[in-house]
Design a protein around this nucleic acid. Structure first.
Lengths: 235, 235
DNA sequence: TGTACATCAGTGAACGCGCGTTCACTGATGTAC
DNA sequence: TGTACATCAGTGAACGCGCGTTCACTGATGTAC
């Protein structure tokens, strides 16, 4: 009443957060490319130019959404892994993979934003995006290495040897992340990522559910089968 | 000269084909959501309303592109399989999977059109799209069943048993396609699809190449390892 | 306690743009007689 | 062979729409004196 101009937001100081939330809602309704400043304004009861006070360009808003998404996915995986009571790596890896899927299913649009179709005119700033993209997998890297060193994980015979062209490229890529990471292990890790990623993608676009029905059970079955293959029988 | 109004198209009668080609080029440049009648017209040197003579709505054009894409992918896989000289299923399956990837890499936009982000306002006509979506996998279904029946493929112990909730759903889904397809085999088939799909998706969005370098070698290594796991040692 | 001023989030009009779709039309082509 | 007519692909103007971005502005708030 006393301040007629700011009815909706007067008591919620986190304006950038509200803008991002509205943008996510917009993407959910109209696809990742469906973000528009005017649409966000409409949803928040403000005019589009007001958003420029918080994000100088539309691209900055998208970048913020991407940063949030990577961090949220990484946080979700970390928290899930931390909640596992077992001391073995296997259960932690399974839990981490399930967390990856659960987050993707719960936030399909944010997942697409970071792993799916790029938004047409938008180019992500590599210096922000590239290091962040590794965060969700930090835990899995660590767990695979730990399981390998402890003997809990054994590289199956079917997976060796690693093709020379790949090993050669690993040698140039790996040092930037960590040293002494065995080629075969990295190969298995990428294989695992491709598997969970493929299942999630098929599920998100309704290709998996119609066939298997219980997509979570399928996901879990797949990871457990993979881990059974990797587990040392005497661990 | 004599017919100034139809300079560009006068000698090329396949107008719908040209329109689709221009639409594909548009998608390649501006993303799958970047199709526009005016843009297509611009590319072909005609006006946008002229397109209505061939496609009554923009959605019809998109549907035609989807139909083409499914058929092209299926044709590519079929042709590749047919070119395999071996009588064993393993090489045919490997070749089919490689064809899946090769087509996706050669036609990234069409691949996204059928397996990735849907175009915002567009809804695919299910009666056209659903049966077509199975076509690319007809050959793999057949090969898996054949290899299983001949003993070339053995379901690995790690993969059994199939979770009850999945088996229950298979029972309702399978009869529409074919009878007597073992649950465990269908489960493996979906696992295989998820794997190749995950690798392709990661490759298309530049997540795989930076790590492994030679993406085709990685893909092949992955499929071969999978098949080694599935192969009967005495086959 | 009161006054002058700076700050700054948000407004509303305006810009130029591209879009899908409609409509009456044009003009070349093919066909019937 | 010539004429009248139907066909039909394509035109160009117009419609109403939503968009990102700019700009001068308003008016409430906080601060310095």
């Amino acid at each position: 009443m006393a301040r007629p101009r700011r009815t909706a937001q007067i008591d919620s100081p986190n304006m950038p957060g509200q803008i991002k939330a509205a943008a996510r809602q917009q993407m959910a309704q109209h696809g990742t490319a469906g973000i528009s400043l005017r649409g966000i304004g409409r949803e928040l009861g403000i005019t589009a130019p007001a958003i420029y006070n918080y994000f100088p360009r539309l691209d900055d808003l998208i970048t913020a959404l991407i940063v949030d998404a990577f961090n949220a996915l990484a946080d979700a995986i970390e928290a899930t892994e931390a909640a596992v009571t077992s001391e073995m790596c296997g259960p932690k890896i399974l839990a981490s993979c399930l967390a990856y899927r659960a987050w993707a299913v719960a936030h399909p649009v944010d997942f697409q934003l970071i792993y799916g179709n790029p938004i047409p005119g938008y180019v992500a700033p590599a210096e922000v995006t590239v290091p962040l993209a590794r965060r969700p997998f930090d835990g899995l890297f660590r767990l695979f290495l730990e399981a390998y060193q402890s003997g809990e994980l054994v590289v199956p015979a079917e997976y060796t040897p690693v093709p020379a062209s790949i090993a050669a490229h690993f040698a140039t890529w790996l040092p930037t992340a960590s040293n002494n990471f065995p080629d075969a292990l990295l190969c298995l890790l990428m294989s695992g990522w491709a598997r969970i990623h493929g299942m999630v993608m098929l599920e998100l676009f309704e290709h998996l559910g119609p066939v298997v029905g219980d997509t979570e059970a399928f996901f879990r079955h797949e990871i457990e089968s993979f881990w059974r293959q990797l587990s040392s029988p005497d661990a």
